[in-house]
Structure formats: C-alpha cells, structure tokens
Design a protein around this nucleic acid. Sequence first.
DNA 1: GACTTAGTTTGAAGTTCGTCAATATAGAAA
DNA 2: TTTCTATATTGACGAACTTCAAACTAAGTC
Lengths: 111, 111
Amino acid sequence: MTLAQCCVPLTADPLTAEEAGELSRRFKALGDPVRLRLLSLIASHEGGEACVCELTVGFEVSGPTISHHLKVLRETGLIEGDRRGTWIYYRVLPEALRALSEALLPTRVPA
Amino acid sequence: MTLAQCCVPLTADPLTAEEAGELSRRFKALGDPVRLRLLSLIASHEGGEACVCELTVGFEVSGPTISHHLKVLRETGLIEGDRRGTWIYYRVLPEALRALSEALLPTRVPA
DNA sequence: GACTTAGTTTGAAGTTCGTCAATATAGAAA
DNA sequence: TTTCTATATTGACGAACTTCAAACTAAGTC
C-alpha cells in the first residue's frame, strides 16, 4: 500500500482496517527511542545524510542493534541508504515523514 | 515531561535520549492498528466524542481488549474520557495530535 | 593472497505486548 | 437490595520485540 493510500487524515473519517494496518506499521517504527534518535540524527545531520559510523558513536547499544533498527526504518520506508566505498550513508525520505505528519493533522472544523 | 518539552521537531536537531523516550512513547501508542482505528473513530465521530458502546461494535476484538487499548491511549495523553450515567464518553485531545504532527514536520531548508 | 575496517545477518535470551475468559465495579432500574 | 447493563481490571498465554555475541560479507590496504 502506498503512502497516499494509507496516510489519510486520521480525524476526518474512521480508518479502514487496512489503512490502520499500514499507518500503524509506520508509527510503530517510530515507537522505539533508539530508532527515533537514529532518525533524528540522520535527518538533522549536515547534508541530510549520515554514515553508520557516525550513528554508532554516542549510543549505548551495540553495533548489531543499530543495524537492526536501521533495517526496520528502511523496511518501513522512512530512510534509505547507499554504500559509497567502505561506508554506508543513510538519509530520511522526507515525503514519508510529511505523510505521517499530515495523517495526524486535525481536520478543520467548519466555521 | 510535557508535550512542549518532548515534541520538538525531529529533523532540526538530534533528539536527546529523554526527548526520544517521551516522543517514542506516544508514537508507540499509535503503533497498533486497533488503537489507531479507535482513535480515528473517536476523532471522526459526530460531536468529537464517542461512547465505548459505539466503539465496541464493528471490531473483531473483545470488550476487555478495547478497554485495554483505550487505557493505553488515555495514559499516553491522546484521549480523555468521562462517565455520564451508565456510559463513558471518550474524546481526542487535539493538542496532543498537533504536537506529534509538528514533531514530524521537516524543518524548512534555508533558501 | 592476508589483514583490517565497516556494516550486516544469525541465533538465542529476556522482555514487552496483545488478547481473551473470568471477575470486579459503577450506575440505573426494578 | 436485587438485578441488569456498561465498562474496567486481573491473570494467563503465545507472539512479537529488543538486545547482544558470534559469525559473516564487502571493500580497501598491505
């Protein structure tokens, strides 16, 4: 299911079971403190991308754990990564964040 | 930790461990399809509120499970409920949704 | 080739989560 | 006060999640 199909405003009409399934998958990916910090680190990093080696420092968890969380974020469509030589660089997919943000926006009450 | 303290934009600066902890607590609450549908049903219901009896119908899960999920949403500060006679009515706290929505917004890139 | 560094995958341990049946509580009505 | 309806709580169980150590892969260097 695409972003557009699942990320309808939450507050306008009741979500279908399918919409809720897709949307909750993405919120669940944001529902872990390590993943949220990783996402934030990547998004706020100069150039909009960060190498895994820059993400590993300053975290209390092991390398494999970082790797696991990056995979979750990747498979949820929130980030993407590509290898350049020895290093792998990750960046946020801004459209995904925007879609989630809009799903939460209150529908304007008619004046 | 208050909404204002935790719901800073994700993409501007790296979240602190504390900020990420609070923010992820709220996203985790949205990370279940049943909870997301409940939230959506309440938010989109006429009058902005819904009685539990209106939420129970049309769900494949048991009453206690609905009750459990409403409690999670309540304890996360996303909804509130009050009893009126026999029934308990829940409504969404719009400020909470707005804060989460803003946390996901991309920071504007300087032109 | 052998060695090193960056990152991922695998497998297992411990924990948290979602669910339900059974039980409990709160209020209305008889 | 007994009974009925609406909702919540408790306790249990299986599934899913987070984490790490160990093993693996991919690229660069000697």
